[in-house]
């Protein structure tokens, strides 16, 4: 490993640690009742960071609801994320979605949805549309093993196979959980499995799937094998060393504390925001209900 590669690898471990600290702090806010419930992403840190490392900025990511910390790893400011989970007047989603519903079109992060596996066919549709427009991008749909049984998983693999889209289905699998990759053969897709606790191993495996997709060879279903909740982050901490870990943790916690203090002072979005974005324009019946709500 060259020194520059080593630094790139270390940067991934740093991002993992930031993701973990954000997860800990904001989930604690959820448990305290200060904000709504946030599903934890424990143990998925290397998977998130490794996947993003293998993608270009133009590639789309379709997260599960446990993947909300991914937004920061892809460039969202911490204060934007904090305003999002507070659902306050500075929340880019105007308090509409639950805290886990983090999305950003500019970052090519699709909107996560609580129903299981419904986001997977969307990844196929975007990939198909982009290929038709001559755009060289891939789509990556993240899922957890619990979603394998859902209809959306099988529909998405079916359509990806038939339409031969540049899509990666990336499933986080813990010990004892079923494999997503073993379903690939039924739909004519490629499959892979790798250690999901090391971001560099993940990036290499995802990178191979991305290469296949960009070469027009279709979709791949990849199992990322997770360990316990702390296995991935323990590796990151070991790699970073105590001094670097302490410094980064302190900086992230300070950023969070500052953002949380500001977010907590901001009020709720305006009542009108409840009725906005139902449609592209405020329809008459919603305008009437807004007047009624205002009293």
């Amino acid at each position: 490993m060259t020194s520059s590669e080593s630094e790139a690898a270390l940067a991934r471990f740093e991002t993992m640690l930031r993701v973990r600290v954000i997860d800990e702090r904001l989930a604690a806010l959820g448990e305290s009742g200060a904000i709504g419930f946030l599903p934890r992403g424990l143990g998925r840190e290397a998977a998130l960071v490794g996947v993003l490392a293998a993608l270009s900025d133009d590639d789309w990511v379709f997260p599960s609801i446990t993947d909300w910390p991914l937004a920061v790893a892809r460039g969202m400011r911490i204060d934007t994320l904090v305003n999002r989970v507070f659902g306050n007047s500075a929340d880019p989603l105007r308090g509409h979605d639950a805290p886990s519903g983090v999305c950003a079109k500019a970052l090519k992060i699709a909107s996560a949805s609580a129903p299981a596996a419904t986001h997977l066919p969307h990844a196929v549709g975007v990939a198909w549309a982009a290929r038709g427009r001559g755009e060289d991008l891939v789509t990556v749909a993240l899922l957890d093993a619990a979603e394998i049984d859902a209809a959306g998983f099988h529909a998405a693999l079916n359509f990806a196979g038939v339409m031969k889209t540049p899509t990666l289905f990336v499933c986080r699998v813990r010990e004892g959980e079923p494999s997503a990759a073993e379903h690939a053969i039924a739909y004519g897709l490629a499959e892979a499995q790798c250690d999901g606790t090391d971001p560099n191993t993940v990036a290499e495996a995802i990178g191979r799937g991305v290469e296949r997709a960009r070469a027009g060879e279709g979709a791949t279903v990849i199992d990322l094998l997770l360990g316990g909740d702390d296995d991935a982050i323990a590796l990151a901490v070991r790699k970073l060393g105590k001094e670097r870990e302490t410094k980064l943790r302190a900086q992230t916690e300070a950023d969070l504390a500052s953002a949380i203090a500001v977010a907590g002072r901001l009020g709720a979005p305006d009542l009108a925001s409840l009725f906005g974005d139902v449609y592209g324009e405020l329809e008459d019946h919603l305008a009437a209900q807004l007047r009624e709500a205002r009293g």
Partner: peptide, 20 residues
């Protein structure tokens, strides 16, 4: 498409998200 209505609409949603 395959005969899977959830897949038909789900894939169409992706196309719409992209701009089609």
């Amino acid at each position: 498409t395959p005969l899977a209505e959830g897949g038909i609409i789900g894939t169409a949603i992706g196309m719409a998200l992209y701009g089609l």
